[in-house]
Amino acid sequence: MADTRVTLCGIELDNPIIPASGTFGYGVEFAELYDINILGSFSFKGTTREPRFGNPTPRIAETSGGMLNAVGLQNPGVEAVVSRELPELAKVFRKPVMANVCGFSTDEYAEVAAKLSESEQVGWLEVNISCPNVHEGGLNFGATAAGAAAVTRAVRTATKKPVIMKLSPNVTDITEIARACEAEGADGLSLINTLLGMRIDIRRRRPVIANVTGGLSGGAIFPVALRCVWQVYRAVKLPIVGMGGVESAEDVVEMMLAGATAVGVGAANLTEPFACKRIIEELPAVMERLGIKNLREITGGAHNG
């Protein structure tokens, strides 16, 4: 019998599948479609101190094997998440959830992290220092080791829960950022956020997305994500939530072999709402075919020899 359980920062998951932040809202849309308790966990929509509408539309563009988005951290603000979204979620999800924390200053990151930590439902804090779609904050912190270190330090002191820093691939050397987070006491890393890209409407001769640029996600970015996970796994000792273009149980195994402990599924949820359910159902058969008895044992398995 295939054992799909993994342990992420001291919390056991039934399986490594974690819908990625921004593709799963606060869970309720998907709970109408299937029992989301089959998931390992999920990372909810990036949450800031104040409510945010986000960027003007169009926010979405299609690409070959993927999509661009420039939503710009639309969210109802941390107070509404705590008072409204989390109680709604509690009705349909009984596992620890990953709280995605965003901010425009180290103070804001710390404040949002502290407020979300008070909820018993929150198992981990995933700290987004890698959103490419907001012009202050976000990627400003994640683009340098000093910025990443400052946010990690601020959040670390604001919470006792596991802190997972979410890293951007839009940097010269992702391992340098990863090491800075590790040095400041991060408990884990999640990677990658989207890749900065753009499209132009050749009839209108204007960018398709109102924000001009957006974040690329979908199957097209899987090899980039896999490479980042591989490099970071060799650079730090922290557990990694690997994500970026994961669409199948085979992709999950591949991501874990590169070094991931758990695996995020993002854009696939948007084009195929039952994607995570399918991947979880496929996983035991794929493990059996590959001779994997305990999934937790394969993390980093491609680095041996």
Binding site: G54, R59, V71, L270
Partner: peptide
């Protein structure tokens, strides 16, 4: 009408005020 990502309310790609 708006450019959509998912079509079922998950991605916030087509929000309007």
């Amino acid at each position: 009408e708006e450019r959509m990502g998912c079509g079922f309310g998950a991605c916030m790609g087509c929000s309007c005020e």
